[in-house]
Amino acid sequence: MKLRTSGLVPIPLKDRLSARQSDIWSQSLELEKGRYLSVLAPSGTGKTTLIQSLYGIRRDYEGAIFWGDQNLRTVTEEELAHLRSTQISIIFQDMRLFPDCTAWENLEIKRSLTNTVSPEQVSEWMLQLGIADKKNAPAAQMSYGEQQRLSIIRALLQPFSFLLMDEPFSHLDKRNTRIASGLILSVVQQHNAALLLADLDENDFFPYHQTLQL
């Protein structure tokens, strides 16, 4: 499967973006499995809008987004749910955890949907990212950095061919960013998946094949 966009422009940002050059907005984009793409997006240029549009949360755009031969604007809710559960995973900037559920419950809700990762592996990843001691803590009582590491693990608990990431390390220090990015890369490689990371600044979190300016 391949991700393709054509003439994509977010309608709420159309006037603001018309005066600047972009490698993505109004252009054509292709991303295949096994490729790593970095998208540099200064504030106000639609970084989160791009990620949410690709994931099918937002549809207030001109142009088209295709996952394989499926036009994201015309897929049914059932088809979109299938894409999200089998082909596309995401790390949200705002994390979107269940605040009253424990860290383990947040992960188990996702893991149990596909049962492709064992509970033992989940525990190992929590230990690796330094949040094993937060297993029974409500997500709302965890720090932003701990919540971000939790959301990273959650995104890896399903089969996927594409991983979308919106500032996934914004609350992490360099050490924890290195550990978390290493885990992500390892799982992405296991799936031979593509990754698309949108961030504010240039980075070397992953061995990107291409860097584009939003």
Rank of each mutant, 00 (worst) to 15 (best):
Q189S: 08
T74P: 02
R58Q: 04
D204A: 13
E32A: 15
L80A: 05
D166Q: 11
W104I: 02
A155N: 06
S112Q: 12
Q128E: 08
D100Q: 14
H209Y: 08
Q210F: 08
W67D: 00
I65L: 04
E124R: 15
S89Y: 07
R175E: 03
T116V: 14
P119D: 01
M95Q: 11
E146R: 01
L183G: 07
E30W: 14
R4I: 04
R35I: 00
Q87K: 14
N176C: 07
L127T: 15
W104M: 11
V39R: 00
R175F: 12
T48E: 03
L212T: 05
L212I: 12
D166W: 06
K135G: 00
K134Y: 04
G44K: 09
W125G: 01
N176L: 13
H171K: 15
L214S: 05
A155Q: 05
L127F: 10
D199N: 13
H209T: 10
V187I: 13
E167L: 07
I90E: 03
Y55N: 12
R16N: 12
I152N: 02
N203E: 06
P12N: 12
A81K: 14
A180F: 05
F160H: 09
S38V: 00
Q210S: 10
P138Q: 05
F169G: 01
K135I: 08
V187Y: 07
D69V: 12
W25Y: 07
T211K: 15
E124N: 09
A194G: 10
V187D: 00
E77M: 10
L196P: 02
D94P: 05
T114H: 14
Q52E: 13
T116W: 13
R84N: 05
S161M: 10
S186P: 03
G63I: 06
S26E: 11
T211P: 00
L157I: 08
T76N: 04
T102K: 13
I131D: 01
D60Y: 10
L97T: 02
I152R: 01
R58A: 03
M95T: 12
R154Y: 08
T74E: 13
D173M: 13
L17R: 10
L29A: 04
T86N: 09
G44T: 09
E77P: 04
I184A: 08
D204C: 11
I24Q: 02
S170D: 02
T86I: 04
T116M: 13
T116K: 15
S28L: 11
A81G: 09
V122R: 01
I153A: 05
T45Y: 11
K33P: 03
V9L: 15
I51Y: 03
L8Q: 06
Q27G: 04
I65D: 00
F66M: 15
L107E: 01
F66R: 14
Q70L: 13
A81P: 02
E124H: 13
L97K: 06
T49I: 03
L183K: 06
N106L: 08
R35Y: 02
F169T: 07
M1Y: 10
D69F: 12
D204H: 15
